[in-house]
Simulated assay, not measured.
Amino acid sequence: MHLRSFLALAVLAIAPFAHAQQTIRLSTTTSTENSGLLAWLLPAFEAKTGSKVRVISVGTGKALELARNGDVDVTLVHARGAEDKFVAEGHGIDRRDVMYNDFVVAGPAADPARVSGGKDVIAAFKKIAASDAKFISRGDNSGTDVMEKSYWKTAGVQPATGKYVSAGLGMGEVLNMAAELQAYTLTDRATYSSYKARTGLEVLVQGDPRMYNPYGIIAVNPERHKGVNHKGAMQLIDWITSSEGQQKIASFKPQGQQLFFPSASKPQAGAISR
């Protein structure tokens, strides 16, 4: 065989393998990682496409910063205001709804602030602030942290110095800290469910429409960062918002409980009923 023909055949043989090994860099929130959702979703995507997803799990603020700097190809977060700003400033394109769940107030079974059974998160925050109990905040500019801060602002109060702990940690670590200190915290339901057995914390407040927690996925703008894998980003976006991806999200039910609800085809109004 002529050397040129041999080399051409070799390139053709290697090309599919090289394509199969493309890496997609995804920045996302600790809730999607801590809950086990990504471990459930991504193997199905990788098996179907041959692509490899490298996950960087941080708070939403940091996830968007990584995307803004072009350090990732795509981001999956839950802070709609920040997401819209990110797109409006030209850092991201083709934002799509993916799924939703809700926030809950978790705390010790003893419930010293007497908030158990309530459905008004603002009233609950006022009671916590007036009590001697501690409150553990993410303190990391995550979607959960942003939402929590908005509740305190609406309530017009905050726990006294020494009773409000800004942890600067991910959701799972904050839940462990709340359990150790017998404190309250705001958490997404999915991460709470994954940590419930090890923390012993109870869901004490839930069902307030203001605790609606939507997630969106956004491709990094390739015009801003020429080196991003835009093709891979769109491949992931298209799959996770497809009927296959959405069904996979709906079927994630650890201990028989559905933790995320697909919303790509049916945008939600924001009401949560529990």
Rank of each mutant, 00 (worst) to 15 (best):
N69S: 11
G232T: 09
A167F: 05
S5Q: 13
G227I: 01
L64N: 02
P159W: 14
G59E: 04
V72I: 05
H2Q: 03
G36T: 03
D208F: 13
E89Q: 07
T199Q: 08
A269V: 11
I136P: 01
S57P: 06
K127A: 10
R96P: 02
G232V: 07
V228S: 09
I122S: 12
H91G: 04
T191G: 07
A8I: 15
F103H: 13
A269N: 12
S265E: 00
S251H: 11
T75R: 01
L3W: 14
K266N: 10
G36I: 02
M234R: 06
E83V: 15
R114I: 01
P214A: 08
K266A: 10
K153A: 10
R4F: 14
T75A: 05
R4Y: 14
M147C: 05
G117Y: 04
K231Q: 13
V98E: 00
V174A: 10
Q257Y: 13
W239I: 06
K163E: 05
M177N: 09
I217W: 03
V220F: 10
G61M: 04
T60I: 02
F135D: 05
A109Y: 04
K127M: 02
Y212E: 01
D120G: 10
S57R: 05
R54I: 09
A13L: 14
R4N: 11
G245T: 03
K85L: 13
K253N: 08
K149Q: 15
G117L: 01
R80A: 11
T32Y: 01
E223T: 05
Q158H: 06
K163T: 07
F135H: 10
T60C: 08
E46G: 10
G232E: 10
H230C: 06
A178P: 02
A160Q: 13
K253R: 15
S150Y: 09
N176M: 11
K85N: 12
G170N: 11
Q158C: 00
L3V: 15
Y192N: 00
G143E: 00
A155G: 04
A88D: 13
R80M: 13
S5V: 13
G227S: 10
L26T: 03
A82H: 09
M211D: 13
A130C: 05
N176V: 09
I237C: 02
P108H: 07
L76F: 14
A123L: 10
I249L: 01
Y192C: 00
T60A: 14
I249G: 01
A183G: 01
R25I: 04
I136V: 14
M177S: 10
